[in-house]
Design a binder for these strands. Structure first.
Lengths: 339, 339
DNA sequence: TTGAAAGCGCTAACAG
DNA sequence: CTGTTAGCGCTTTCAA
């Protein structure tokens, strides 16, 4: 590969001049710049990433830490990863993929080896052990999710509490008084993952406010799990007319089960989900839902990170306001009572 | 951060000695090694990745190129990414995530900037334009998928032709003579993605062999698409008793539709899928299926890559033999005919 | 078995 | 506006 020195020689200028036309960090005459540009083009020159990282003390890489398990909704993770990568490129950054089995040590490794300039954490728990490592190493970081103590941290997330409340308010407005919340798998709550706890909190508060009877049922991804949970709900609380669902994996099973049970949606039972719009639009009937804007989370995380690296300001929590779209899966509770 | 020089000073040895205890590339006395190790530990020393890359001309990074779209089954991609990352770490490599919107240019960029030592390509088409770039830059590469001309290339894939054949043979063995293949979205075939074409080929050949009547119907991911495709199959070929499905996203919809239509699985219609075991086990009834071993693909790709980087040998195509697991979704065709 | 020293390719003062 | 030069932290000859 051609080096910067090759380019300098070819263009008849000093190495620093080439460096400066590349970085724009000091003025270069149009003529010189053009000549250098031509040489770069001609020689197919690309700066050596390692050399640059060494000399500038900046790797232009950011690390994205993703969970391994399958208990988090995978397409959301993937969308976040793609969005982060795409947006990072716009700022000249590459993205290093870190799995969570390295744990906090992975963060330490990339931080102290200068492999990455910053990290983006996903799957953030209320008490997340990785945060201590972020603080210790002092590496720039953005969390997708909000821990219990977000002091001084940069966080981006959907306002899940509000999202939950929106679901409740929507159902309450339609006259539903007996509602079940089919949530994420038990493991998610046990790990105190922020979004799950916050959604639950938002739902509970809003339900209390609306004098609505609410039960929360965690639910695994399998058809059997869904069947079990639904059966139990219908048995223990036969007057249930509203379902809030936050486990995207379970949606198809749920719809199928209701159909089999002869419960028509939304005449007999209304469903409102917290999931990506794309998922809500793929079912029949399409689901009334609060959108989970996965790509936006990734995009905003990178934007926030770049802003912070530039201004070095203190932590900031960006909560994206949720929006509920009414589709075909919710209707007045009156209809159900009439039956 | 502590540098190698700091460690050397602290241990009272030359910098080179520290380097050599780290790399093991030349013998170091036990005593010296211990002393250096202690200093490393004490100072929390981590080699600077950029400096190392510069001096050694090796980045210890490999790039993973993933598609952006949602037309490929996302959980499979994610499993591959996780497996690649996990296995790469075992060899001391980090993984850079590249999205396909940079196209071949992305490969060129990481290759010529020495950001990565090798690339792993996914979503490989029969005529994949990225291959030319791999050849041009001479970067080490492994493809997950097999292009039409795999000459000199390292490829890892499930033997999809055989996988398709297995499905046909299973159904044929049960007496099914009228079978429909519900495949990937049209776009996948238009892009000539290898695995889709090979599965189709394997199915067609085996069907001809078995004197089976076969239709191929590409199918999008939405419920409506599934409904349309299924309705058309049942209308045009009412005697259809067997379904082969290769679009995992459509499976829940399909099962739901059949249930609604009063067609019992497997009494009225048998279904065999090509999908991850986990998906097949999550439905009711569980699906007879050929496993799509996503994680294994990733693992094997890294292993093959490491072997190649070590021995520099020529291209090799690793085809993983498929296995079919009989579950509850397939039964004798006789039952259907009786109806 | 170890040390000294010359780069790897680039950036960023410092000079002019 | 441009050139000179001193590193960045590591690997790897070359010497001992």
């Amino acid at each position: 590969m051609a080096t910067l020195a090759d380019v300098a020689r070819h263009a008849g200028v000093a190495a620093s001049t080439v460096s400066y036309v590349l970085s724009g960090k000091r003025p270069v005459s149009d003529e010189t710049r053009e000549r250098v540009a031509r040489s770069i083009e001609l020689l197919g020159y690309q700066p050596h990433a390692g050399a640059r990282a060494l000399a500038s003390a900046k790797s232009n890489v950011l690390a994205l830490v993703v969970p391994l398990g399958r208990d988090l909704y995978v397409p959301v993770m993937m969308d976040i990863a793609i969005a982060v990568t795409t947006m990072a490129r716009r700022f000249g950054y590459d993205v290093l993929l870190l799995t969570n089995d390295e744990g906090p040590a992975g963060i330490q490794r990339v931080a102290t080896s200068a492999r990455a300039d910053a990290v983006i954490l996903t799957d953030v728990g209320m008490e997340d052990e990785r945060i201590a490592m972020v603080r210790e190493t002092g590496i720039d970081a953005v969390l997708i999710g909000v821990p219990a103590d977000s002091d001084g941290l940069n966080c981006v997330d959907l306002d899940f509490a509000r999202a939950g409340a929106l679901c409740v308010e929507h159902l309450a407005g339609l006259g539903h008084r007996e509602v079940a919340f089919i949530g994420e798998a038990q493991g998610i709550y046990q790990r105190h993952i922020g979004f799950a706890e916050r959604t639950l909190g938002g739902i509970r508060d809003a339900a209390a406010q609306a004098a609505m009877n609410l039960v929360h049922r965690p639910c695994g991804a399998s058809y059997e799990a869904a069947a079990g949970v639904l059966a139990r709900i219908l048995e223990e609380r036969p007057r249930t007319t509203g379902l809030i669902v936050q486990n995207e994996a379970v949606i198809p099973s749920l719809l199928s089960l209701l159909r089999t049970a002869g419960r028509i949606v939304p005449e007999d039972v209304s469903i409102v989900a917290v999931c990506p719009d794309q998922v809500a639009q793929q079912t029949s009937p399409q689901l009334s839902s609060v959108n989970l804007p996965a790509a936006e989370l990734g995009t905003r995380a990178v934007e926030l990170l770049m802003r912070r690296m530039a201004d070095g300001a203190d932590g900031e929590v960006v909560l994206i306001p949720p929006t509920l779209t009414v589709r075909g899966s919710t209707g007045p509770a009156a209809a159900a009572s009439r039956g």
